[in-house]
């Protein structure tokens, strides 16, 4: 029992210790001129859904719930967000070449059609990010239209 207590104490110390290792939070107050919503007009239903379902990993601003600020969860997220922004950053969308924008819109359509995005590991924790059938249809209609006009 004494040994168990010591092990637990040690783990506790480690757990507290790793909280002091700094993580780069994906938070920014900047206004992005090249933001997707700034360069293309869209109904509010779409822009709001994009922010809730996509912007956490595909923009320079993540809305962190409290548990995501705790290590080692924060490390895990940091990697995810880095990868997400590399693939598609809505804040930088207007800086992409027209060809790249088209390519990204096609990928967005494919991901929504195939129900691959938002990731289930994300929607498990963020129920409001789930796209229901109507929302999916609305988003697909919008992106199909945009694809031809870019």
């Amino acid at each position: 029992m004494k040994i168990l207590k010591r092990i637990l104490l040690l783990l506790f110390i480690v757990f507290v210790g790793i909280q002091f290792i700094p993580t780069k939070m994906n938070v920014s107050n900047e206004v992005y001129k090249a933001d997707f919503m700034n360069i293309y007009s869209m109904p509010k239903t779409i822009s709001e859904k994009l922010v809730v379902s996509c912007y956490d990993c595909h923009s320079n601003n993540t809305k962190y719930p409290w548990y995501n600020k705790i290590q080692p969860v924060a490390w895990y997220l940091e990697d995810h967000i880095k990868e997400g922004k590399k693939e598609l950053n809505f804040n930088e969308f207007g800086n992409y070449s027209v060809r790249r924008q088209k390519s990204k819109i096609k990928s967005i359509i494919r991901e929504i059609e195939g129900d691959k995005m938002p990731l289930s590991s994300y929607t498990n924790m963020h129920e409001d990010a789930i796209l229901n059938a109507d929302e999916r249809k609305e988003l697909l209609g919008f992106f199909e239209m945009l694809k031809d006009s870019v």
Partner: peptide, 23 residues
Amino acid sequence: KSTLILGIAIMSIAGFTVQSCGN
């Protein structure tokens, strides 16, 4: 108090597992 410590310990073990799997 010991329940609390146990809980935290389990969390950190779980955390390490996630990390090491990633690595």
